[in-house]
Amino acid sequence: MPKWAMVIDLDKCTGCGDCMAACKLENNVAIVSPEQTEEGRVMFWMDMMSVYDGEYPHVKVKRIPKPCFHCDNPPCIKVCPVHATYINPEGLVGQIYHRCIGCRYCMAACPYTAKVFNWYEPEWAEEFKTCLNPDVSLRMKGVVEKCSFCAHRLQVVKEDADAEDREIMDGEYMPACSESCPADAIYFGDLENRESKVFKLSRSPRAFKELEGLGTEPKVIYLSKRE
């Protein structure tokens, strides 16, 4: 059974935000009005954290892309009252929108604040409606959503592999962020496959995980030489 994981090389990342845009388009994430954004209801499956070091004028800014960490021991699934968020055997933490009752307990329990909520019925501008991705269902008001590691792509990739009676190749299944990254800073692959790039990078001395001490065992691994 594969174990899908992401490696983000922060030394390569330029903080351009392309992954955020790609994710938003790929997954039909609703576009929130500026007023709502001001109130803290912005929706990003792939978010960008900005960490400021030092005092003006000697400020160092770190930009860190933050998707859902697809923990191996996810705190969110334990608290879900209706099995709307769960971890599947391949290590993907799924979110089933039609099951979700919108109690937002998973959001409160997630130490990475990776989940977003549809406070209103999601909206798109008229021009956007023609380019919604048909492979990803639209969400409705009142449900929680989050990065799925583009699991809809896995459905297709798996079927292709099964039709040709072979294993999924390394790099065949790739989320939109990883595919679009102009700096090639986001790697994606199977952590169980010792030949995969992700496996090798995860063993790098530069590798670290966010909030490792909590025991959530995230499957998004960062690479950085800096502290």
Binding site: N88, P89, G94, H98, D135, V136, S137, A151, H152, Q155
Partner: peptide, 8 residues
């Protein structure tokens, strides 16, 4: 019958 096998 994993949810993510069919749900998207």
């Amino acid at each position: 019958y994993d949810c993510l096998a069919c749900h998207r």
